[in-house]
Simulated scan of single mutants.
Amino acid sequence: MKKKQLHNFQVRPDSFECSVTADIAVFGYLDNKLKILLTKRSVGGYTNHWMLPGGAMEKEETLEGCANKVLFSLTGFREIHFEQVKVYTSPDRHPLKRVITVSYYALVQPENHPLTLKSNVEEISWFDIDNIPEKMGFDHRQIIHDAHNFLKNNLKDRLIVGKLLPEKFTLPELQNLYENILGLQLDKRNFRKRIFQMDILLNTGEKKSGIKGGPFLYRYKNQ
Rank of each mutant, 00 (worst) to 15 (best):
R192D: 08
P114D: 08
N154Q: 05
L107A: 14
S119P: 14
H140T: 01
K188H: 11
N180E: 14
T170Y: 01
W126S: 01
L117C: 05
M136P: 02
L115K: 07
D130Q: 08
F191G: 11
N180C: 08
Y104A: 00
K118D: 06
L159A: 07
V108H: 10
I132T: 15
F191S: 12
W126K: 04
L159W: 11
Y105M: 01
N190R: 14
I181Q: 15
P110C: 08
D187L: 03
I144M: 06
H145S: 14
K97L: 14
H140I: 00
N176C: 13
I132A: 12
N154L: 06
K118P: 03
A147Q: 09
E111D: 09
N153T: 13
V121H: 10
L107Q: 11
E122M: 08
L117S: 09
D139M: 04
F127H: 06
E111G: 11
H140C: 00
K188P: 04
L184V: 14
E123Q: 03
H113M: 05
W126L: 06
F150W: 05
F138Y: 03
V108G: 07
F191D: 03
R194P: 00
K97T: 13
K156F: 05
R158Q: 15
I195T: 15
F127R: 02
L186R: 00
Q142Y: 06
D146F: 02
K152I: 01
R98D: 08
L117H: 06
D128M: 11
R192I: 07
E134N: 04
D146K: 04
V99D: 02
V161K: 05
A147F: 10
E111N: 13
P114I: 09
T101C: 00
L182S: 15
Y104H: 03
W126Q: 01
R98G: 06
Y104D: 03
L186E: 04
S103I: 01
I124P: 00
S103K: 05
I124N: 01
P114L: 14
V161M: 12
E173N: 06
R158G: 12
H148Q: 08
W126F: 00
P172I: 06
R158L: 08
L159M: 14
N131Y: 11
V102Q: 04
L174K: 05
N180T: 08
K135W: 00
L184Q: 13
L171G: 03
V161F: 10
D187S: 12
S119F: 15
S119H: 15
L171T: 05
N153P: 00
W126C: 13
L117K: 06
L159I: 11
L164A: 10
I160N: 09
K193I: 04
N180D: 09
L174C: 10
E179L: 06
D157C: 13
V108N: 07
I195E: 07
D128N: 02
D130F: 07
N180S: 12
N112L: 15
H145D: 15
K135A: 01
K118C: 04
K156L: 03
K188C: 13
L151W: 04
N154E: 07
Q175A: 15
K97A: 11
R98F: 12
E179A: 13
K135R: 02
L117E: 09
L184M: 11
L165T: 03
K156V: 09
K193H: 14
L184R: 11
V121R: 03
